[in-house]
Design a protein around this nucleic acid. Structure first.
Length: 568
RNA sequence: CGGGGCGUGGCGCAGCCCGGUUAGCGCGCCUGCUUUGGGAGCAGGAAGUCGGAGGUUCGAAUCCUCUCGCCCCGACCA
């Protein structure tokens, strides 16, 4: 591609509305442009990077025997109502109507659609197992799109769905696809880590996420030196108890005007946060419950929903809280909270003389003792594990990292097949629901993750495997006919040799071109200038290392191919 | 949805508080000449309904009301 004819609008300055490195760089280097919040145009370089990642994903999926299909973006609401997700998925599901007011969803994921295909077409266990996948634009009306294409409302995703006769078969495919994911991310030169994950809204029994390690990641992962790694939602760990051997005192009412948060109450009363108990009111599948955790800790809603055996657990809206506690949000407590279940974390059990909300405005209670002053329906592990807690497996201290979630795999079991009456006839003549797995991989997000990990102060530093072009030819001055003739020839010869080349043939000053070359980040830059030609060489510079080699003009193609080989 | 911030040529910003002629600056863009090894120089030039609507005023980018859009924090979330 000749730069002079290409749409590669680079900018000298950072855009004002970008925060993260990858977002800034993709905008500055002319890879993407925002159309509206969370919706992006991919310009030529961005499109090429996306296609590179897509090709790797396709190769590895095909290599483990998956079959590519293409399902529609548009799917009728009836299908979503069959599984209940029309209601459960919430506002994130992008809904549209046709001219007859019939409702549709813009697909955020395709369990329903693929299950519909399979229930219509597959009858016998003899046809199992198999995996279908697609690479397609997905829509999610995110509450808060951010970080450019890391979290956008329209994005490119590879989603795969496997169908099985039994769990063993699912386990096998699950593993082979996780292995394929490992190869995909290795080929993208990413530093990543598969971690155990909570199952969330998609459902199912077992899940892993692949996390690209990055400080700008939105996810927190908990890791242990023993090899254990999980998302913070999923992580199990032992929280160090704060021993409490004081003699229990009399429960006492204290005024705490305007003190709503743990920090405020703690500071106001001069009592450490771990001697407070936090009471959060939730709605679990419509049922109101109170969840209790030690004041210095957070509640893990995923664990809470498992403890409650509920599908959907959300913090109760303020009006529900006010009606229940008789106080504004911030003063809820378990004492006298009759009629609803009170679930407490194990860390609450041994405490004495704690402070809790008083269920009245500007009132807390102190010297409260669980079990004596209020009843706990059940103790569960509902605390959010964090750095410094003890590994549940080996007891070592846990560490934490930030990560960008680039893929997630689920063992769905029969959640969708039973809900949609998708069955096959097994060997014993009995109709059974398909056992399913699903495997998502964010293609556009992966592109952003690669840039997040591969950049320097001058711009993007593409790994060769996903670079839009392998080589950029840079002609120092377009006024020198000797240089442009050589560059034209080299451009043609490299293309003939199968090398993807970006040829900066713009009549701009050398400085501009060097800066732009660094910014757009192709792995190898070949500079053609009068200086080198004097001694009959062109200069090849590796973007990543800055390493420069002089290649004789006569041997340029071979020399470049050789260097590219070392970059593989 | 709650909190905060921002909308002024293509990009980045100033001006607004304290209303007053032709709305500035840097970059970019166009023309010409000179340049070309790390964001060139000189000369000339084009380009802005100051996000939109309404209001106050002799007069609004500036003050008021409403509205739309964008960003950040939170809540929420494959």
């Amino acid at each position: 591609m000749r730069w002079s004819k290409a749409l590669i609008p680079t900018h000298k300055e950072d855009p004002s509305d970008a925060e993260t490195t990858s977002h800034k760089l993709m905008l500055r280097s002319g890879y993407i442009r925002k159309l509206t919040s969370g919706v992006y145009n991919y310009l030529p370089l961005g499109r090429r990077a996306l296609l590179k990642v897509e090709a790797i994903v396709r190769e590895e999926m095909d290599a483990v025997g998956c079959q590519e299909i293409l399902m529609p973006v548009l799917s009728p609401s009836e299908l979503w109502k069959e599984t209940g997700r029309w209601d459960v998925y919430g506002k994130e599901l992008w809904r549209v109507r046709d001219r007859n007011s019939r409702e549709f969803a813009l697909g955020p994921t395709h369990e329903e659609v693929v299950t519909d295909i399979v229930r219509n077409e597959v009858r016998s266990y003899r046809e199992l197992p198999f995996t279908l996948y697609q690479i397609q634009t997905k829509f999610r009306d995110e509450l808060r799109p951010r970080f450019g294409i890391v979290r956008s409302r329209e994005f490119l995703m590879k989603d795969a769905y496997s169908f099985h006769r039994d769990e063993e078969s699912l386990d096998e495919t699950y593993k082979s696809i996780c292995d394929a994911y490992t190869r995909i991310f290795e080929r993208c030169s990413l530093t990543f880590r598969p971690v155990e994950a909570a199952t969330g809204a998609i459902g199912g029994s077992h899940s892993h996420e692949f996390m690209v390690l990055s400080d700008t990641g939105e996810s927190e992962i908990i890791v242990c030196e023993c090899g254990y790694a999980a998302t913070d939602e999923r992580a199990e760990g032992a929280v160090d108890p704060h021993p409490c051997d004081e003699a229990p005192g009399e429960m006492e009412r204290v005024d705490t005007p305007g003190m709503k948060t743990i920090e405020q109450v703690s500071e106001f009363l001069g009592i450490e946060p771990h001697k407070l108990v936090k009471t959060i009111i939730y709605e679990a599948d419509g049922r109101t419950v109170a969840a209790l955790v030690r004041g210095d800790r957070e509640i893990n809603e995923a664990k809470l929903s498992m403890a409650l055996k509920a599908d959907l657990v959300v913090p109760a809206p303020p009006d529900v809280i006010e009606k229940l506690t008789g106080a504004p949000v911030g003063f809820a407590g378990p004492v006298g909270l009759d009629g609803i279940d009170v679930i407490a974390d194990h860390t609450v059990e041994p405490l004495v003389n704690v402070v809790v909300g008083g269920n009245a405005q500007d009132v807390h209670l102190k010297n409260v003792k669980p079990g004596r002053d209020f009843k706990v329906t059940a103790f569960h592990d509902i605390v959010l594990v964090r750095k410094g807690d003890r590994c549940a497996r080996c007891g070592a201290e846990l560490n934490s990292f930030r990560g960008i979630e680039v893929s997630q795999a689920f063992k769905l079991g029969t959640k969708y097949s039973s809900g949609m009456n998708a069955t096959f006839l097994d060997e014993d003549g009995v109709a059974k629901p398909f056992i399913m797995g699903c495997y998502g991989l964010g293609v556009s997000r992966t592109v952003a993750a690669i840039i997040e990990q591969h950049n320097d102060k001058d711009g993007i530093v593409w790994p060769l495997s996903v670079a839009p072009f392998a080589v950029e030819i840079l002609v120092v001055s377009m006024k020198s006919e000797e240089c442009t003739t050589l560059a034209d020839t080299l451009y043609t010869d490299l293309k003939t040799a199968g090398v993807e080349v970006l040829y900066d043939d713009r009549d701009d000053s050398a400085g501009v071109k060097f800066k732009d070359a660094d910014l757009v980040g192709m792995p190898l830059r070949v500079t053609i200038g009068a200086r080198g030609l004097k001694s009959g060489v062109v200069e090849a510079r590796v973007r990543k290392t800055g390493e420069v080699s002089e290649i004789p003009v006569d041997d340029a193609v071979q020399g470049i191919l050789h260097i590219l080989e070392t970059l593989r």
